[in-house]
Every structure is written in structure tokens, then in C-alpha cells.
Amino acid sequence: MHELGVVFHVIKMVEEVARENDLTQVESVTLELGEVSGVIDSYLENCWNWAVKKQEKLLREADLIIETIPAVTYCEDCQNLYGTIEHGKICPRCKSPHTYLQQGNEFRIKEISAC
């Protein structure tokens, strides 16, 4: 269960931010999640909902909001940018395998709404 481990990391970070900013209640946490970050949205939400119920007041009612970042791959041979999900590792224009992921494996806390 990768997602559950990840949820605990998110909770730890939110607690830190709350401490730094003297927050007592979090309304929502917004994550930026790359399409190929390896984390599955729906599992993540389930794990979140389960885990926050066990937390102190700070997080008990917090919603999780997920913003998806599309995966884009760059081809070194023909400088083409293309969708990673549709085409994978081989450039659809020149068939080169010399490509790398430009964006899409992000996993960040964007912001939290709290008081």
C-alpha cells in the first residue's frame, strides 16, 4: 500500500506547516499530483479519509483536493514534446527512444486552507 505510506508523509508535512503558522483547524489540503507519479488518486483519497479520522482536531475534517499535472515527455533527438500516457517512451514523431519525462511525476502539497 504505497498510498497509505504517502498519506502519512502528507499528514506529517501539514502538521509542520500548521505549527509554523499557528493553525488549529485544516479545512482542505490541495495536492499537485503528476499523471505518472505512481500514485492512484482514488486510493489516495480512500487512505486519506481513513487516516484523518484517526487524527487530532487539526486534521479530522480536512478534505483532500487533487490537481492533476499532465505527463509530458521530451525527445532529445527531435526536440518534440508529446503526451507520455499515449505514447510512452518512444517518440511518436521520430521513433527515438532517447526521451525523458519533462513533467508528470510531481507530488507536491500546493496549499492548505486552514484557520
Binding site: V6, M13, E16, L23, F107, E111, I112, S113, A114
Partner: peptide, 18 residues
């Protein structure tokens, strides 16, 4: 009514582990 405010975080989840 509680006043929620938005706090920008912009931190990677793996940052603290790193």
C-alpha cells in the same frame, strides 16, 4: 463562522524524507 485562509505550501512530499 470560521475564517479559513489559504496558505501556499509548494513543497514536495518527499522533501522531508530527503
Amino acid at each position: 463562522m470560521k475564517e479559513f485562509k489559504v496558505i501556499e505550501v509548494k513543497r514536495s512530499i518527499l522533501e522531508d524524507n530527503d
